[in-house]
């Protein structure tokens, strides 16, 4: 057993005889960087282990907060289909009813109020 090991060892030495390791410097540079360039390269190639759950949570919170802030900055941003402008701007259509001419929105609001009052009384 022990002699076998000796023999294999000897054989390996003979086979590796022509090879010479000459880049010890570079290896050392990589494992123990000393110049700023080497340090940067190390950082550039550094591998990160990112935990999905906490990072995902943080990113979502930040995104939502960001969107909320943007929306607040432009309350009437032309995105929502049903957002109400101020009442003067809403007056864009006339309606004829009972021989009178009304702004459509005002008329509909008044009629709805009337019906609500009726139900209230009834």
């Amino acid at each position: 057993m022990g002699s076998d090991r000796e023999r294999i060892n000897e054989k390996l030495r003979q086979e590796l005889e022509p090879l010479r390791f000459e880049r010890a410097e570079q290896v050392l540079e990589r494992t123990h960087p000393r110049t700023w360039k080497a340090r940067l390269a190390a950082l550039w190639n550094k591998e990160l282990d990112i935990a999905l759950v906490p990072v995902g949570a943080v990113v979502s919170v930040v995104a939502i907060a960001l969107m909320a802030v943007l929306r607040l900055g432009q309350p009437d941003a032309g995105i929502g289909w049903n957002d109400a402008g101020n009442s003067d701007d809403r007056r864009s259509k006339l309606v004829e009813a009972g021989g009178n001419t009304y702004w459509k929105e005002d008329y509909e609001r008044a009629v709805a109020k009337l019906e609500a009052d009726d139900q209230h009384q009834g």
Partner: peptide
Amino acid sequence: KRTINIKVKHL
């Protein structure tokens, strides 16, 4: 697996 492994340059 709950982590991903990524190099800084790719990030």
